[in-house]
């Protein structure tokens, strides 16, 4: 069996979960919700096995090309969703989050999945930690983006299956904070590694600048929630804009401009 088959099976599970959540919007049945959740769990387990397998074969965390980073981004997003769903039972939000996850996998599956060899400067635990924190951070920002959109949907349409506005706001703030915390660790590990590898801890290339911007933006958001006028809708909008900044940093720079972090 090849590892791509596992990933396709995982995508199938995520697709089923999206279908389940969609049907649940109409039927509002607890059973449907449980089935959809089980699909997410199965998809996540399959994807985890696939990731572990590829890691084992490569001998390093395989995140050095666009296929692998999209794959890892999707795995992190599923992990974050499960954290929130297990903790807060936010079932219906899964429709949007899993749809986003499928989009990432859709782009990944169309790309070359061969495992590239690792260049020596990346052969360090700093690299693995930098990437793990970075994508877990991105995934939490994607989660906040989804919660932001759902907040606006809930405000306009009042969907009974979605959590209340107060819960959505609380969860949005939590994912921004957790994302910021992990992204801070990513920046610290990256800075120490850069100092060891190049002799300076901040590089003035466009990817470096935009990563700093992502960090600064979300640092601002960690405080914006204290300002009454920004709470709720303002915060939801900021989460959406923030994810735009994340996407540009992750994909836009790699695809459109040159940097020392190609397609990461």
């Amino acid at each position: 069996m090849n590892s791509l088959l596992l990933l396709k099976l995982a995508s199938g599970c995520y697709l089923l979960s999206v279908a389940g959540y969609l049907l649940n919007l109409h039927f509002n049945a607890k059973r449907l919700q449980q089935i959809s959740f089980s699909c997410v769990v199965s998809g996540f387990l399959l994807q985890t096995i696939c990731l572990g397998w590829r890691w084992h074969i490569a001998g390093f965390l395989p995140v050095t090309n666009l296929f692998s980073t999209l794959f890892f981004f999707s795995w992190s997003l599923a992990a974050c969703y499960l954290y929130f769903d297990i903790r807060y039972r936010i079932g219906a939000t899964g429709l949007f989050v899993m749809f986003l996850n499928l989009t990432l996998l859709f782009f990944a599956l169309g790309r070359d999945s061969t495992l590239p060899t690792l260049i020596s400067s990346l052969d360090t635990p700093f690299f693995s930690l930098h990437i793990i924190f970075s994508f877990l951070g991105y995934a939490l920002f994607a989660m906040a983006f989804s919660l932001g959109i759902l907040y606006l949907v809930q405000r306009v349409f009042t969907v009974s299956q979605l959590p209340s506005l107060a819960v959505l706001r609380k969860l949005n703030e939590e994912s921004i904070f957790l994302g910021f915390a992990l992204f801070t660790l990513c920046m610290i590990v990256g800075a120490i590694w850069a100092h060891w590898a190049w002799g300076y801890y901040f590089s003035w290339n466009i990817k470096g600048i935009w990563s700093f911007l992502v960090w600064l933006f979300y640092a601002g958001m960690c405080h914006a929630k204290f300002i009454k006028r920004w709470q709720g809708t303002g915060y939801a909008l900021l989460s959406i804009i923030g994810f735009g900044v994340v996407l540009f940093t992750y994909l836009g720079i790699g695809l459109l401009l040159e940097s020392n972090h190609p397609l990461e």
Partner: peptide, 16 residues
């Protein structure tokens, strides 16, 4: 922080 973010965002696109 917002001011710095906006300046760096706009300006950095000139870098390449």
């Amino acid at each position: 922080a917002s001011g710095a973010t906006l300046l760096l965002m706009g300006g950095s696109l000139q870098v390449p």
